[in-house]
Design a protein around this nucleic acid. Structure first.
Lengths: 209, 209
DNA sequence: GCATGTGATTTAACGGCGTTAAGCTGGTGG
DNA sequence: CCACCAGCTTAACGCCGTTAAATCACATGC
């Protein structure tokens, strides 16, 4: 009898359906505003049923975040195929901004929710499920290390970690500011992608030797 | 009889004590984790007593945010006393970063909580209680407008709004990233103030004519 | 000087949240 | 055929923000 396997498959399927429902609602309403009961309703379940597949709301969130980290990593892998390290930095930055604008709630989960991303990593501080070449920060870091080693930056910009943090902070600031204050009319928002391009241009121009 | 005035004064006093307790707990535990009951406990009140002085938890938050906006505005006024507009931009940026690092929970309230800052402004989009010269964003915007008018920036950086957003995003990204991922060991954090200085230096160098 | 009333505060309660415990039920393995 | 157990339900707990009703203190009007 392959009935054991079939049940396992069905179990995995409902797990997936729960994840899908949770993702939809998290993205639509935000994490805080999404209730376990609402997730269950969408599958015509009751709330406690979810607890047979996931420990709690947070582990649901964690699993989704893990998927998103993978997606961003894949995107960065694709963007990282440019030979020139400085151009690669700019492309990574622009890709990051587009990812944030296209998936605002995923972005919120990944980079604006304290403790959400942390939990998918082991105690040694290394990514648990990710190999280095699909870890977005690592990809940026290598690009910058290459640029530094090639002597592309002037004095004061020789520390790849510091430069990585500068670049990441710049694009993250743009995406997250726009996310928090998009509705506020007291600031005249300019097109974010163009702003990102100018910002990255200015940054690399200011750092280049 | 000045008994009416005395009662008003006492009422104002308890209002202030409630605000103080709320601020302490918001800063210590975060807004979400702070309960109305905990705020009341700290004053040896019961939770419903607060509702005689404030409509709800959100209006408590709003009042504190308004105070903080004023404090940041005052800081920016003081930092804005430098004649050279470009140097002023950098000083404002550094002041902003220090403000964020010194008052992380206030910063979180002001710039990382959607809808918190919005509510202290009128429907016309102008600050309600603030005059322009104490509005932090306006102060940055004027500095940049002056720099642009003086022809300090090269082509592509002639729009004061876009440049304002670039500068704000850069420093905000640094502060908020550090706030969200400070505990994460997979990133080797460099001293934030120095990083901010380098970032601002690179930005202005890249924008200057 | 005593009734009146009003504002501040309390207790009790409501509905909703995440979560846990206990009961039901139908297919599987012995 | 029966005993079991996974997967679901209903019921309930303790917490939250908030509201309603009762209590209490005290200044005011007669």
């Amino acid at each position: 009898m392959g009935s054991k396997e079939r049940r396992d498959r069905e179990r995995e399927d409902t797990r997936g359906r729960i994840l899908d429902a949770a993702r939809t609602l998290f993205v639509e309403l935000g994490v805080e505003a999404t209730t376990m009961r609402a997730i269950a309703d969408r599958l015509e379940y009751t709330a406690p049923a979810i607890y047979h597949h996931f420990a709690d709301k947070e582990s649901l969130l964690r699993e989704l975040v893990t998927q998103d980290v993978g997606a961003l990593g894949l995107l960065f892998q694709r963007l990282g195929e440019v030979a020139d390290p400085v151009e690669r930095m700019v492309r990574l930055g622009m890709g990051y901004v587009r990812f944030g604008l296209e998936h605002p709630q995923h972005y919120r989960l990944l980079f604006m929710t304290p403790g959400a991303k942390k939990e998918i990593r082991g105690e040694n501080g290394c990514a648990v499920e990710e190999n280095p070449e699909s870890d977005a920060y690592a990809i940026l870091h290598t690009a910058i290390t290459e640029a530094v080693r090639a002597g592309r930056f002037r004095e004061g910009y020789g520390d790849p970690d510091r430069v990585s943090q500068i670049c990441w902070a710049a694009v993250h600031g743009l995406v997250s500011l726009h996310m928090v204050f998009a509705e506020d009319s007291w600031i005249e928002w300019r097109d974010v992608e163009t702003t990102a391009q100018r910002m990255l241009d200015a940054l690399v121009a200011g750092m280049e030797a």
